[in-house]
């Protein structure tokens, strides 16, 4: 079995008597795309910052490819590329120069750094802006630069803290495509996000964090299947209460010419329900299904909305 890319056990951290992390346990397999979902203050950024050395760990284990993030920080940090949520500003250097510096911090020689910077600038569409200073870039371009910085040393683990916060829809899709490409190249990706859609579309697995603890993990499908009650609504005529026993296997209500079913997997059950109804003299006028989302899962688990 391969060593996990990221292993976190019993991670605790408090700030001024406020318990930010309360025993986080999380494992990310090599090559996995994991989404860490949670509301503001849940502990997402603190967890990430402990992995990268920005926050000092108080208790627990944090390992990258089996190495401790404190004792073997040179190894672990060289494996991670992080795109922080907060955008940095620089007054002195054009972004190409900043990226060259960034590559140097990770030990890339001048020629290696130049080669990587050219590749990344091209891939992220920063070519026209490479001689521009960071403070003169638009918000979207700054986000691209932030990602470029994270990728400059070709890390095996990419950590993205709210990478699409504040960017327009078009750029969001460009970034999503690029993240999918990175994942297909075998990179391990840890993404924190407020955008449920982002997690559902990109992540193989999602970990839900709340009040400093991971409360649920699984693929978006598994989570919605396990926890999310999906709905199926059938508008029909010819229904009477004697037909209730035909649908004993399902949970449903009848109201004003409409049957409402609560199902775990409406796509699977829909055909059976329609068949039973039509075989028993009911005339179906319309059918609509609502699949539960991660938002519903989150609401179910925590009693609050993610945003």
């Amino acid at each position: 079995m391969k060593i996990p890319a990221v292993k976190i056990r019993g991670l605790k951290k408090s700030f001024n008597k406020v318990q930010a992390l309360n025993g986080v346990d999380l494992t990310i397999k090599q090559g996995e795309f994991l989404g860490l979902l949670g509301p503001n203050g849940a502990g997402k950024t603190t967890t990430i910052n402990i992995l990268t050395g920005l926050v000092i760990r108080q208790e627990g284990i944090t390992e990258i490819f089996g190495k401790d993030t404190v004792k073997d920080y040179r190894f672990t940090r060289s494996k991670i590329g992080i795109a922080a949520q907060e955008l940095s500003i620089d007054w002195f250097f054009p972004i190409e120069k900043l990226l060259l510096f960034h590559a140097g911090y990770y030990g890339l020689s001048n020629s290696q750094a130049k080669e990587r910077v050219d590749i990344i600038i091209e891939k992220l569409g920063l070519g026209e802006k490479k001689n521009t200073r960071l403070r003169q870039l638009s918000g979207g371009m700054k986000r691209r630069y932030q990602l470029a910085k994270a990728l400059i040393h070709d890390p095996e683990i990419i950590i993205l803290d709210e990478p699409t916060a504040g960017v327009d829809v078009e750029l969001r899709h460009v970034l999503w495509d690029y993240l999918r490409q990175l994942h297909s190249e075998g990179k391990t990706i840890l993404l924190t996000t407020h955008y449920i859609e982002e997690a559902e579309l990109l992540c193989e697995r999602v970990a839900i964090i709340n009040k400093g603890k991971i409360i649920k993990e699984g693929s978006p499908n598994e989570l919605t299947m396990q926890l999310g009650q999906s709905g199926l609504s059938v508008r029909l005529s010819g229904w009477d209460d004697r037909k209730k026993e035909l649908l004993d296997d399902f949970t449903f209500t009848y109201d004003n010419g409409r049957l409402h079913f609560s199902l775990l997997d409406p796509e699977k059950d829909m055909a059976t329900i329609i068949k039973i109804l039509t075989n028993n003299d009911c005339h179906i006028q319309s059918v609509s299904a609502d699949k539960a989302s991660l938002e519903d899962v989150f609401l179910d688990l925590t009693g609050e909305k993610i945003n």
Partner: peptide, 14 residues
């Protein structure tokens, strides 16, 4: 103040 320090602190530098 300009959020540049994390770039240095998260790099493999002692």
């Amino acid at each position: 103040l300009l959020q540049q320090l994390p770039d240095i602190l998260t790099a493999p530098l002692s």
